[in-house]
């Protein structure tokens, strides 16, 4: 039950973040929102894994963490440069 609520909350927050991605208005808003959505997704997966003891999805969490981080850094970098030129 608790798990379900937790996952639902993660999904809701993820959806909220996604709405921000769509609505913007700024690029920075979208970048941050996408990151938040990813983190929420990771949280949901991790919670699920913790409750069921299944490790199937765990590599996904690790990979998404690294890759999501990378993506955010790249986009930040891009934003930075866009504003400077």
């Amino acid at each position: 039950m608790i798990t379900s609520i937790a996952i639902a909350l993660f999904v809701v927050s993820s959806l909220c973040a996604m709405i921000r991605v769509i609505r913007g208005p700024g690029l920075a808003d979208r970048v941050i929102a996408l990151d938040v959505a990813l983190v929420a997704l990771m949280g949901a997966i991790a919670t699920k894994a913790a409750s069921t003891g299944s490790t199937t999805y765990l590599p996904i969490v690790a990979v998404v963490a690294i890759v999501g981080f990378t993506a955010t850094v790249v986009m930040t970098r891009f934003l930075e440069q866009g504003s400077s030129s």
Binding site: T55, Y57, P59, I60, V63, I66, T70, V73
Partner: peptide, 19 residues
């Protein structure tokens, strides 16, 4: 036996390189 494999590993290495 689990999610993963050569493709994912390659992308991960790639992500490191991007960083």
């Amino acid at each position: 036996n689990r999610p993963g494999g050569g493709f994912a590993a390659g992308l991960l290495i790639g992500a490191v390189l991007v960083l």
